[in-house]
């Protein structure tokens, strides 16, 4: 090619450049597809293994019997106690965690005009999202279970007075409430973080158009911004729920575990990951191994069903996009 006249050099450089750009482009397409395939493969490797180990031990007894039953001491043992416990505690945690998390996210994205304060809140949310769950569990333990050092005299009487409103200020024992609050603590920053990121990505012209048409800020928030960001916010909530449903460490001290079926959050409660942990720690007798894998499978299937449900509900409303 050296015979070509020098004045064609820019065109040649152009062609070479285009070729290079296209090659890189194709390379990146292939790379992205490959890594996505790798991620999906890992999913199947893990899920496949859990399904393989768990499915052989699953039967109806597992769902309808507790680990121990007072009326039928010889009944087959199952995990009804921990399934119910997980559902109740995650539900209670969401009632507290989701609104607080979303409100904080909205604050960060919409109202944070004081620069230093919003930076502080953002930093705090990040730190909380990274705090190890066991420490959060210890905090919930100190507040809701031990409480001896926290509430004295008047404070204790006040707490008892509001017991009707907040049942979790019962006497200091491990309880479903304490476990739920520990989970809520973990949930809030995750939701706040994702909510903020998503709301911030709502294009400014949508917001400006709404305000320009005379809508108030709150109207704009509820009619324009939140609906547009809904899918992302729901993803954030799902991620948070998936995270807390699988948490073991914070429940160890707060929920306490219960081998009997209990639906009263004032009493100790069990949860699926908690049972998995207990069974894993126990001597490798066959029945305990079954418990480990079957509980794990049920936990994952529960989360799966929940994911599908949320997806279904949110899809019906998402007529656009």
């Amino acid at each position: 090619m050296s015979t070509l006249p020098t004045n064609s050099s820019p065109a040649r450089r152009q062609r070479l450049y285009n070729l290079k750009a296209r090659l890189i482009s194709w390379g990146m397409i292939i790379f992205c597809t490959c890594v996505a395939a790798l991620a999906v493969f890992c999913l199947f490797a893990i899920f496949g293994y859990i399904f393989y180990r768990g499915a052989e031990y699953l039967n109806w007894n597992f769902f309808f019997h507790s680990q121990a039953s007072r009326r039928h001491p010889s009944a087959p043992s199952g995990a009804a106690n921990s399934i119910v416990g997980t559902l109740i505690m995650v539900g209670l945690a969401s009632i507290f965690g989701v609104p607080v998390g979303i409100l904080c996210g909205i604050y960060l994205a919409e109202y944070s005009r004081d620069a230093w304060f919003s930076h502080l809140v953002r930093l705090v949310v990040d730190v909380l999202a990274g705090a190890p769950s066991i420490l959060v569990g210890v905090l919930a333990y100190e507040i809701f279970v031990r409480r001896i050092n926290l509430y004295h005299g008047f404070a204790l009487r006040l707490m008892r007075a509001v017991k009707m409103v907040a049942p979790f200020v019962a006497k200091g024992d491990p309880s479903g409430w304490a476990g739920a609050m520990a989970l809520a603590f973990i949930m809030c920053p995750i939701i706040a973080r994702t909510t903020e990121e998503i709301i911030k990505l709502v294009p400014a012209h949508l917001r400006e158009a709404s305000l320009g048409l005379g809508a108030s800020r709150t109207q704009t928030l509820f009619r324009v911004i939140l609906p547009t960001a809904r899918a992302g916010i729901i993803t954030g909530i799902m991620l948070a729920i998936a995270r807390i449903a699988g948490e073991t460490a914070p429940l160890l001290f707060t929920a306490g575990g219960n081998n009997y079926l209990s639906t009263d959050p004032n009493k100790p409660m069990s949860a699926l990951p908690f049972e998995v942990y207990k069974a894993y720690q126990s001597p490798p007798r066959p029945s305990w191994q079954h418990q480990t894998w079957a509980c794990m499978l049920v936990l994952i299937v529960l989360i799966l069903i929940f994911n599908l449900l949320v997806r279904f509900v949110s899809r019906n409303k998402m007529k656009v996009r």
């Binding site: 991620a39 890992c42 893990i46 073991t248 799966l304």
Partner: peptide, 9 residues
């Protein structure tokens, strides 16, 4: 779903 797998799993 992969995000939903608990860490103990």
């Amino acid at each position: 779903l992969l995000a939903a797998v608990p860490s103990i799993a």
